[in-house]
């Protein structure tokens, strides 16, 4: 509601310039853009997204157990609830270690040494 209002006021106030071709190009520090900007980007973003999904879902599963943890201290089922939390955290930790060992967490995949031509 607010956002259309603010944009609407802006629409009434602002000047409307001519849409020259130069102006409508995207900004690349004054250079003519080469090709589309919808380029193939780094596959690592995709890996990050997948790892995030797995971690986030598991974390959502911890929250209910965490909510009843305080009650469980007084009503005697604390060992059960604690082991449940521990199980989830351990699962996540194993997943983390797996990713770490596999090298998915390394942003820089090995640096090629610059070898000058002799």
């Amino acid at each position: 509601m607010t956002v259309p209002l603010m944009l609407g006021v802006g629409y009434l106030l602002r000047p409307k310039g001519k849409d020259t071709r130069r102006k409508m190009t995207s900004y690349e520090c004054g250079e003519e853009p080469v090709g589309s900007a919808w380029i193939k980007f780094n596959i690592r973003f995709y890996i990050v997204a997948i790892v995030f999904i797995i971690f986030d879902v598991e974390m959502a599963a911890i929250f209910p157990a965490a909510t009843v943890f305080k009650e469980s201290i007084t009503n005697g089922s604390v060992a059960l609830v604690f082991s449940e939390i521990f199980l989830f955290v351990a699962l996540l930790l194993i997943g983390l270690i797996y990713c770490w060992v596999r090298g998915d967490l390394e942003w820089v995949k090995g640096v090629t040494k610059f070898a000058p031509n002799k």
Partner: peptide, 27 residues
């Protein structure tokens, strides 16, 4: 993505991966 600009795309991808990654330590 919508602004079809290489700078924007790189920035947006960084933003997404960063926000998404830090979501986990925050939670």
């Amino acid at each position: 993505w919508a602004s079809e600009n290489k700078w924007s795309l790189l920035g947006g991808l960084r933003a997404a991966s960063q926000i998404v990654s830090y979501e986990i330590p925050v939670a």
